[in-house]
């Protein structure tokens, strides 16, 4: 979810007869729910797809700090500020867990950072939307983290060991994020008329971008079919989106807020809501770099990378000096 439109080999699924002996043994291990570990043999496509997927997920955690960081200095109370700060710190940790998982596949941290900055690697479309008022911070926690949890909970069972372990750690912390978001929404929705308007406005702006987080329908996608066979994707995008809508609508009702969708209706037959699709043209434009905040987000990452260089180099020079002295003393 934080990973969208991840391409796998693109060749379609191989039948057992088309597989080499190694590939067959590999698929058998996955089918038997045995975890694949870094030094195990794996098909090149599995390795590359995972690097793209985990890398994109890691970048999303890091870039995702920016829209929320925007409100740390303007949080309405000291308590809210400390909570938001803790959440943004968590996101940095999530990025770190995921970068470490990707590194076990043979890509370096710096390579990933450079590929993010050059635009070669992506991050989730959702973080290219601005956070305009305090209720947006509530909406981000409630909807964006809520959508992320939908995807991350099943990924705890993914076939790649380091990725699975990173997801387990992350899921433990995500529930704090979603609850803190909903807590903000409750406060706003039960507040003054102006606060209620802000809460509704935040929901209006974040609803469709949140639905986009799951990516377009992938029922026909060869990439998804391969990823699902490898168990690095567990559910289809449509399944997760449906689950998210079904879970979120009653939460909005509790808040007394209206989901901005005239077609939203309970469908008894399927046991879920019917709802409108987001504007997929907008989604592809955002992925291409034409969202409201793409340039700002990447510029902020570039600035942090450039201005942090002297710290990285300085600490390394210090470590090298100390280690040389130690050798000389021995």
């Amino acid at each position: 979810m934080y990973a969208q439109m991840v391409k796998s080999t693109g060749k379609g699924l191989k039948s057992r007869d088309e597989m080499t002996e190694e590939e067959r043994a590999f698929q058998d291990r996955i089918d038997a729910d045995t975890k694949i570990e870094p030094r195990d043999w794996m098909p090149e496509g599995y390795r590359k797809t995972l690097i793209r997927q985990i890398g994109q997920h890691a970048h999303s955690e890091i870039v995702g700090q920016l829209p929320e960081g925007n409100w740390i200095t303007r949080a309405p109370t000291l308590e809210r500020k400390m909570i938001l700060l803790a959440k943004v710190q968590d996101e940095a940790g999530h990025g770190l867990y995921l970068y470490c998982a990707a590194e076990t596949l043979g890509i370096s941290r710096d390579d990933m950072t450079e590929q993010l900055l050059s635009g070669k690697m992506k991050y989730s479309s959702i973080f290219n939307y601005p956070t305009l008022n305090w209720a947006d911070i509530g909406a981000v926690g409630w909807l964006v983290d809520g959508a992320a949890i939908m995807n991350q909970v099943p990924l705890q069972r993914t076939s790649y060991g380091p990725y699975s372990r990173a997801m387990i750690r992350i899921c433990k912390e995500e529930s704090f994020h979603q609850r803190q978001g909903y807590d903000i929404m409750m406060k706003m929705a039960q507040g003054s008329e102006a606060q209620k308007r802000m809460a509704q406005d935040a929901l209006n702006r974040f609803w469709y971008p949140s639905l986009m987080m799951f990516g377009p329908s992938d029922a026909e996608s060869v990439h998804s079919a391969q990823s699902m066979a490898w168990k690095i994707k567990i559910n289809t995008n449509d399944e997760l989106r449906q689950k998210f809508v079904d879970q979120t609508v009653p939460q909005a009702e509790y808040l007394g807020l209206t989901i901005p969708d005239e077609n939203l209706e309970w469908n008894e037959e399927k046991g879920g809501y019917d709802f409108s699709q987001p504007d997929w043209e907008e989604f592809f434009e955002v992925l291409k770099g034409n969202g409201p905040c793409n340039a700002e987000r990447l510029a902020a990452r570039q600035k942090a990378w450039d201005e942090g260089r002297w710290v990285r180099d300085g600490l390394l020079a210090h470590a090298r000096k100390k280690s040389a002295r130690k050798v000389a003393a021995e």
Partner: peptide, 26 residues
């Protein structure tokens, strides 16, 4: 395992200025 060796300290000062001057992995 991986094709990078994140454990080793980068050796010379020139490299320290390139992107390869990564801190070791712990």
């Amino acid at each position: 395992m991986s094709s990078v060796n994140p454990g080793a300290l980068p050796e010379d000062e020139d490299k320290a200025r390139s992107a390869r001057a990564e801190w070791p992995l712990w």
